[in-house]
Amino acid sequence: MTSRLVVSDLRATVAGVDVLRGVNLEVASGEVHALMGPNGSGKSTLAHVLMGRSDYEVTGGSVTLDGTELLGLPTWRRAQLGLFLAMQYPIAVPGVPVGALLAAASHRDGPELEAAVRREADRLALADEFLARGVNDEFSGGEQKRLETLQLAVLRPRIAILDELDSGLDVDALRGLAGRVASLTREAKVGVLAITHYVRLLQELRPDRVHVLLAGRVVTSGGPELADRLEVLGYEGLAAELGVEELAIEAPESADPFADPGF
């Protein structure tokens, strides 16, 4: 069965500021979509609004997964319906190792699940101690991203949002994780929305479609060649070409808990 995530005219505010201003996107099983945009364009906000984080207020639009409206459903229901979010800054839960988390998440029985976790850990070069420790608890950035990918691989959602899976990774680690994601799109037909602001990830992940988010709107979409054009023009150049004036949204710093800290 082909799954389809459809985002239509999605609007959201945080602390009274419009941060998503009518986003349209469609991601189907086995496809890889890249969502690119500068800091403050609303990328992470979109990821968390899709997942149902309560800090954001949805003010319009719709998000459906295989025809089921997700807006209004709690986060865990969205996840159970097949949506997954690999976070840019995964949250530490001390004392809750990934095995316990996945057992609660998947209701799969012990030995089979344990074997699956171990297989993925080997594949992603994640050392045993990170399976024993609470998830993300005193993990390095690279270890966190490996663990996010491990969970993705074990849970095999219909649609996965990867929020800057590439941040904090060296080239070799990036290649390994992107390779695993790519194989999941082929073997398990996972549909991927990969949020990034660098083209590096896309060289590994080979997106079918590239979308550019500026100031809370998808301003243009295209094939992989759009990423190459971005590399040449930069966001400002592309915005000028498209006649778009605003790139980022000035949200009050404290208002958006999941915003980029900036670089």
Partner: peptide, 10 residues
């Protein structure tokens, strides 16, 4: 922490 676990379907 609760949100993180919820994003996994818990």
């Amino acid at each position: 922490q609760r949100y993180y676990l919820e994003t996994r379907g818990i």
